[in-house]
């Protein structure tokens, strides 16, 4: 499965002492403190943590939607200043899809921005529609698609743009358990096919164990930060009932349990 688990290569993304303090009506809130992480090209990094620990905040900073208030984030050695086509984002909800465009045109949106011709764009979009298992559904509008289908379209839209990395914020969080398991399997396959670097946010331990090459467990806020990194050296596709899988699951569960326990 040629992926790199530890930062042996030069990091694709490097978060160095990153912090984020929000200042609002209720005063200042330090959501993230001293968050450091190097991600290697091609790895699937799951960021796992309880609700409100700062996962989305970290992702938003890597995406360039929000600026860190401390530390810095480097992408290929250059500081991240704004969102860019090199970082595709799959959002938690599906409000990010364009209701007025068909599924196919949603997928081809990034290509259209680059001025790609209609025929070529269509062919490429069809390719990614097939990749996410929605062949023949391209003419539908988002309002005619189920929640799971919409997330597939989001993934296809991000992939069609051929970014350096994918940032995914609990993409399957709102789906039922069965759909979620199916989509996890497909994402794993797509990741192996496309060799994209993925930063994947979740609060589902099993999901993290099934997908990740490394799992970062976060400490809850204020001042949320990385508490531990657990490498997952299991082959794909992952056998969820294997002893090896259970061993990783228990280890991560122990780390998370302490967090939850500390909360109450």
């Amino acid at each position: 499965m040629g992926f790199v688990t530890q930062g042996a290569d030069v990091a694709l993304v490097s978060l160095q002492g990153v912090g984020k303090t929000f200042s609002g009506r209720t005063g200042a809130w330090e959501a993230v403190r001293d968050f450091s992480l190097d991600m290697a090209e091609g790895e699937f990094f799951c960021l796992l943590g309880t609700s409100g620990c700062g996962k989305t905040t970290v992702l938003n900073m890597v995406a360039g939607f929000e600026a860190p208030t401390a530390g810095r984030i480097l992408l290929d050695g250059a500081p991240v200043e704004r969102p860019g086509a090199d970082r595709g984002v799959v959002f938690q909800g599906h409000d990010s899809l364009y209701d007025w465009l068909t599924a196919l045109d949603n997928i081809g949106f990034g290509l259209r921005l680059r001025g790609m011709g209609k025929a070529e764009r269509r062919a490429k979009a069809e390719h990614f529609l097939r990749m996410v298992g929605l062949t023949g559904q391209g003419a539908k509008h988002p309002s005619e698609l189920s929640g799971g289908m919409k997330q597939r379209i989001q993934i296809a839209r991000a992939l069609a743009n051929d970014p350096r990395m994918l940032l995914m914020d609990e993409p399957f969080g709102a789906l039922d358990a069965m759909t979620r398991a199916v989509l996890q399997g497909e994402l794993s396959r797509i990741w192996a096919e496309t060799k994209k670097t993925v930063l994947f946010i979740t609060h589902d331990i099993e999901e993290a164990c099934a997908l990740a090459t490394r799992i970062g467990v976060m400490r809850r806020g204020p001042g949320g930060t990385l508490k531990a990194i657990v490498p997952v050296d299991l082959p794909f596709p992952r056998e969820r009932t294997s002893d090896e899988f259970m061993r990783v699951f228990r280890e991560v569960h122990g780390l998370i349990h302490d967090e939850i326990h500390g909360a109450h």
Binding site: G64, P83, G84, V89, F91, S96, F109, G110, N161
Partner: peptide, 18 residues
């Protein structure tokens, strides 16, 4: 207009006018 719609366009490479 939903914030995510705008953000999605930005990280697909859209400039202000797009």
């Amino acid at each position: 207009v939903g914030r995510d719609k705008i953000r999605a366009a930005q990280c697909l490479g859209a400039n202000r006018w797009q």
